[in-house]
Design a protein around this nucleic acid. Structure first.
Lengths: 229, 229
DNA sequence: TCCAGAGTTTAGTGTTGCCTAACTCTGTGG
DNA sequence: CCACAGAGTTAGGCAACACTAAACTCTGGA
């Protein structure tokens, strides 16, 4: 018997740790210092929590080797991500939030909503598969389809692509992008690119834009249906 | 400078204490044991919290004499009650909740939502003044109009009244009432009443019902427009 | 291969908020 | 008018989580 299956509610802290470790682990274990930085805590605090979570079988941990989610830990993390993204979607669709302001609200609500409420919101939205930033919403069973995407900064010129996801939370950046019509679903073509990470010129349906490479990094794209496979 | 004005967030516990003490105080201070019973905590824990809240100027407390909200404490309590009732209203109106299931969900959400979200929900509902149970929703400035009501158990026979509020949280009782069409807004007339707290017969628009005095206690009524003042 | 610095863990504290056990106060009945 | 039941408080613990300071371990470069 483990904590989550026993229906014991995990604390907000625990949920945040697991979510963060999920985000940081890309196959490899997450380093203590990485986690500390992401959560704005001291490494010592993280070390302590890692120990507790390892005892609860939510993490696997070898000292000095970083931490990795167990199957159960991953389950919890994906549940939190599902909640977060569905809440963001709901707030944008029904309560007048814009994509640059939903994050903080969802961050708090994700720890408070019941499964029932999450599923009601999902149903009200027609069971969406991605959130306002284009990030995929894990299914209730924990499965998630991660589309292959390429940062706009690495796109070849002259080929049509669609923006799929915007990998950013910073409200200012998000507003900057929204002002320029750069959102998931929008079709773009790189016209030209300057060397040394210089600005990139792209064509949208009705305009041309010049954007910096920093910004272009956050625009994750995939080939459109119509383009060459 | 006090805690709430400084924008420091109060803990969930503190918010619950203040809300409970508001509910229990009817002019008089709330007894430690009353609070303990309401929150399902030991009297010792409550004593400790009362001390801390008194230091924070959220309560006035004379040892062995119970606790009372300060102006600031009342402000916090009313804010929580506003949140709770608006959340309940929103969930019932927009997310398929029924009045017997909303309480627990609202109980958790009220601590997590931002003022922005609460006000968006209020706006989406058209700024309602009462929740699904008929309880008045405090205004954003903390003002609340408490209508004078009389329990159905004490109503005179033969005069038309309207159910205004249902003073109960118990889901079973709420379902029992809903099944019989006994909700806020419904017009009723007491037909007869048996002595010794016996059952009461009431007439509704299209039916007659016999209800126990226990249940009748929770149905809070007021004279209808049309009836004699 | 060794060692310096980066990274990690341990040790010791503080806060919140809960508990039980033991004590103290209050008010009422005899 | 005083003792005693019961309400209220204090004392002492514990668990979760955070911190700083100090000790330890790992690794890469000379």
């Amino acid at each position: 018997m483990n904590a989550a299956q026993a229906g014991e509610s995990l604390t907000r802290s625990v949920e945040d740790y697991l979510k963060t470790i999920y985000r940081l682990s890309d196959g490899r274990p997450a380093a203590t210092s990485e986690i500390a930085q992401a959560l704005d805590l001291s490494p010592a605090s993280v070390s302590g929590m890692i120990k507790r979570l390892t005892e609860q079988r939510l993490l696997d941990h070898a000292p000095y080797r970083g931490a990795q989610l167990t199957e159960e830990g991953r389950r919890v993390a994906l549940r939190m991500i599902r909640r977060h993204r569905l809440i963001e979607s709901y707030l944008v669709a029904n309560l007048g939030y814009s994509w640059d302001t939903v994050h903080d609200e969802a961050e708090r609500l994700e720890h408070a909503v019941s499964d029932t409420l999450v599923e009601r919101m999902a149903a009200a939205l027609g069971h969406p598969t991605s959130d306002p930033h284009g990030d995929p919403i894990p299914a209730a069973d924990g499965s998630m389809i991660e589309e292959d995407v390429v940062p706009l900064s690495e796109l070849p010129a002259g080929v049509e692509f669609a923006i799929r996801r915007v990998g950013a939370e910073d409200p200012e950046l998000l507003r900057h992008l929204a002002d320029r019509g750069l959102r998931p679903g929008v079709t773009i073509t790189v016209v030209s690119r300057q060397p040394f990470n210089g600005p990139i010129t792209i064509r949208l349906a009705t305009s041309e834009q010049v954007i910096g490479s920093e910004v272009a990094h956050h625009l994750l794209c995939a080939a459109t249906e119509g383009s060459v496979a």
